[in-house]
Design a protein around this nucleic acid. Structure first.
Lengths: 156, 156
DNA sequence: GGCTTTGTTGATTATTTTGGTCAACAAAGT
DNA sequence: ACTTTGTTGACCAAAATAATCAACAAAGCC
């Protein structure tokens, strides 16, 4: 039940773009460096995101990528679906028609509930939520650093 | 985010044992045949379940395995944990201490919520629930078969 | 006591998936 | 023309997965 590198890298990359929302085009190279993602791998990662109209891109000097929609309009469920495919724990939950088990086996139902539970979280989370959470986290992190620095000065 | 064969096979095998609860020892061979699991694979599958005291086993003729506890006392969360390890979508959710990201990256929090959502379902589902769901499903399936047979007779 | 049946364990294998690279190409500036 | 950037497809190595084989251990049966 682990997310693959696509899912992890992909969300980080999109969060990076969301944090730079409104600043025009961001070179992929920069995203790769900041998020510590191999550039050639990132290039492949985002292909489905571009195809789905989540990201727009321009080539050439001063080119790069940026979000095509406001971070608020991009749900994590959509993103993960594009990056990882369905989040259903088993195949048969996605197309029950082609699996006879769906009518007969009880576990099938549970995996369906698990899928719904996951979807509940991802469907209600947007890139904007990530941005806000991120800035909050960084603020408190900086706070802690200041605190430590302050104490160091006192002991000095 | 897919379950591996261990998880799928394992829950099916346990449901099979739960359906035979109170009937003494069941040969692994029978479970393997009914659930269409390669016998040597099943043998390895259940090792952690035996170690955890969910299943008891006896060798020799008339030997086999059976649940060690009442199906009602066996939660799916426990089972999946043993079969698949943690259901957390990313490593860092399990031991945040050893991952610096947990303090800094927003996605981390979301994966934590996803884990909690999955856990909510699995924690509240026992083998007994599966048994009841299974018998209900089989009853309605039989019902449908009868209905079809009845119609066939009418048209004949 | 030997033999058969069943579960236990560990090593080994084939296949698939994953994560990543390389190289050729396409477009957009300068 | 040339450089910079994104796009595409082929390719590769390593890891995980699914499964098998073989040796062994215990429990019952004759």
């Amino acid at each position: 039940m682990k997310l693959s590198a696509k899912g992890r890298y992909g969300t980080r990359a999109l969060l990076d773009l969301a944090l730079h929302w409104g600043e025009g085009l961001v070179p992929l190279k920069d995203v790769a460096r900041r998020q510590e993602i191999p550039l050639p791998y990132l290039e492949h990662l985002i292909a489905p995101l571009i195809a789905a109209g989540i990201i727009k891109s321009t080539r050439g000097p001063r080119g790069g990528v940026s979000l095509f929609k406001h971070p608020e309009e991009i749900k994590l469920s959509e993103v993960i679906q594009l990056l990882e495919g369905s989040i259903a724990p088993v195949e048969c939950v996605d197309n029950p028609k082609s699996y006879p088990c769906s009518n007969l086996c009880a576990p099938h139902d549970i995996w369906g509930e698990v899928k719904k539970a996951i979807d509940g979280v991802l469907e209600s989370t947007t890139l904007q939520d990530l941005v806000e959470r991120q800035t909050r986290k960084e603020a408190t992190a900086r706070c802690k650093v200041r605190e430590v620095v302050y104490r160091l000065r006192l002991t000095k």
